[in-house]
């Protein structure tokens, strides 16, 4: 591949990864607070439809994003109510919502299938976009892409440098201990689940109003599931999760390059391949294998390695908070 091709692959990767970045950061926030929002597949798909419809109706892409965020938060509210207030299985309700809202997006989205609509205007950043390579790669797209950069950094700063971020990590880890320190676990879990859902909604709108520019049936199929996998791959750390999203973007953009290279392989296979590959990645980086490999290492080495690659999920992830 020439350097020009590499640049194109990377630029496409960033563009295609941007919606995913919103989704994985949203899910990371929600899971760090202890709530798995397994509805991602349905939320993203439905909000892609809602965002596009709202933008179409109002003529404003930004109102489209807002509508998508609100609807995403509302779906997350169902998850939160079930998980936090009713203390039911988060997996069950999330899965049902994933299927339900996928179908609902088709059911309600019939009138707006494949019609032209507003998209986010391109906006190369002055000065920055003129930098060699980096300028074209990172700073020559649009506001939504730049917002995703800011979101990644802000989330990281929030998690590790602010008091509220420390509390967020605490309620997903040991909610009882956080409660004893004065944290209102129930309210905070609701809050972060809703924020996570809103970001997933924005992810949906980023598909239909930016990256894919339009809506049709099951347009974002598979992205929600992959977002959930990337959160695990990212070890519940926003930077690593974002890296995972970009890695997926690279796989996708390589798959589209490969279409020219391997004429024999059907396009449809290459379209599915990144999804399969990403999950294979996840499987092979999961801690289980590592533990086994390290079984025979001396205790000290084992501890170091595990600490360095520490990707244990939040201890209270998926568990209801029962004040004892």
């Amino acid at each position: 591949m020439s350097s020009e091709q590499i640049l194109i692959v990377l630029a496409t990767a960033i563009a295609s990864a941007t919606p995913l970045v919103f989704a994985v950061i949203g899910e990371t926030i929600s899971e760090r607070a202890g709530v798995i929002n397994l509805s991602a597949e349905g939320t993203i798909m439905f909000c892609a439809m809602v965002g596009f419809a709202a933008a179409l109706a109002t003529g404003s892409v930004w109102l489209g994003f807002i509508a998508a965020a609100v609807v995403g938060a509302l779906i997350a509210l169902i998850v939160a109510f079930n998980a936090i207030t009713l203390r039911q299985s988060q997996i069950a309700v999330g899965f049902v919502l994933a299927l339900l809202f996928s179908d609902l997006s088709s059911f309600l989205g019939v009138p707006i299938v494949r019609i032209p609509g507003p998209t986010v205007p391109a906006f190369p950043l002055p000065l920055l976009s003129e930098l060699p390579i980096v300028g074209r790669l990172l700073f020559s797209s649009d506001v939504v892409v730049y917002a995703s950069y800011v979101l990644i950094v802000l989330t990281w700063v929030f998690f590790y440098r602010t008091r509220a971020g420390l509390t967020l990590r605490a309620i997903g880890e040991q909610p009882n201990a956080a409660f004893a320190r004065g944290a209102d676990v129930v309210r905070l879990r609701y809050l972060y689940t809703l924020i996570g859902g809103a970001l997933m909604g924005i992810a949906g709108a980023a598909f239909s109003l930016d990256f894919k520019a339009g809506w049709s049936f099951r347009h974002t199929g598979g992205y929600g599931w992959i977002a959930l996998a990337i959160v695990i791959f990212g070890g519940w750390n926003p930077l690593r999760a974002a890296f995972g999203a970009y890695l997926f973007g690279v796989l996708q953009s390589l798959a589209s390059v490969a279409q020219d290279q391997f004429q024999g392989v059907p396009t449809q296979v290459l379209n599915v391949a990144p999804f399969a590959l990403m999950i294979v990645f996840l499987v092979f980086t999961s801690a289980g294998w590592l533990d086994r490999l390290l079984m025979h290492a001396p205790a000290k080495v084992r501890r170091r390695v595990l600490q360095a690659l520490h990707t244990a999920p939040p201890a209270a992830l998926g568990k209801p908070f029962v004040q004892d």
């Binding site: 397994l38 997996i91 598979g222 599931w225 959930l228 996998a229 695990i232 599915v272 999804f275 399969a276 990403m278 999950i279 294979v280 996840l282 499987v283 999961s286 801690a287 289980g288 294998w289 533990d291 086994r292």
Partner: peptide, 15 residues
């Protein structure tokens, strides 16, 4: 044996 959540192993195998 791999301690991979059956949810994600399953989704991956579906793909």
């Amino acid at each position: 044996y791999g301690r991979v959540s059956e949810i994600f192993a399953g989704l991956g195998l579906n793909f």
